[in-house]
Simulated scan of single mutants.
Amino acid sequence: METTTFNKVKEDDAEILSSWTYPPPYDFYNHAQTEDRKQEWLTGNYFCIYKQAEMIGFFCYGESARVPVNNCLLYIDEYIDIGLGMRPDLTGKGGGKSFLTSILMEIERLFPNTPIRLTVASFNKRAIHLYEKLGFIIQHQFQRKSTTFYIMVRKK
């Protein structure tokens, strides 16, 4: 059985994560390699996900997982927010369910009995389909710049 581990993002990890590039339309999720972004990786609630010794993705929770919006009321309640990203060369190959399941198990370990929420760009049908398969439903939608986002929740 493959072991999944979660480690707080370190300096080298931040460099690797910032270098990941996704093909269109997922290039929306590419991260700028700036000092501010690096500091966000290092000081926010970001964790690298490893299968054996190989980094396969990351997740974050809390404020780090929220899309900044003018209407902050969208994020006020008892949910724990999560964000995630799979290494670009692993996406679209059927590994998303086990990837997300391992994250959900870790979040449930860290925050027992807390409902989980995530925010996703509406064009990302592949991710939305996966989230729905794992029990998430669309609760709200909002616009930020030219992108529509869905806030999805998973209740216990």
Rank of each mutant, 00 (worst) to 15 (best):
E2P: 12
T4M: 10
T5S: 15
T5E: 13
F6G: 02
F6D: 00
N7A: 07
K8R: 15
K8G: 02
E11V: 07
D12C: 04
E15G: 07
L17H: 02
S19F: 12
S19L: 05
T21I: 06
Y22N: 09
P23C: 03
P25T: 06
F28R: 04
N30S: 01
Q33K: 04
R37Q: 02
W41Q: 08
Y46P: 02
F47T: 00
K51T: 01
Q52K: 10
A53M: 09
E54V: 05
F58H: 02
F59E: 08
C60Y: 05
Y61D: 02
E63Q: 14
S64L: 14
A65G: 07
P68C: 11
P68S: 14
V69A: 13
N70Q: 15
L73Y: 10
L74T: 08
L74Y: 15
I76N: 13
E78M: 07
I80L: 09
D81H: 10
I82R: 07
I82P: 00
R87F: 00
P88K: 01
T91N: 10
K93P: 09
G94M: 14
G95Q: 12
K97S: 13
T101R: 11
I103V: 09
L104G: 03
E106Y: 00
E106C: 00
R109A: 00
R109C: 05
L110W: 05
F111D: 02
F111H: 06
N113H: 12
P115C: 10
R117S: 03
V120G: 08
V120L: 15
A121W: 04
S122E: 15
N124S: 14
R126M: 14
R126Y: 13
H129Y: 15
H129V: 10
Y131P: 08
E132P: 11
K133C: 14
L134G: 02
G135D: 05
G135V: 05
G135F: 13
H140D: 15
Q141H: 15
Q143P: 06
K145Y: 01
T147M: 04
T148N: 01
Y150L: 07
M152L: 12
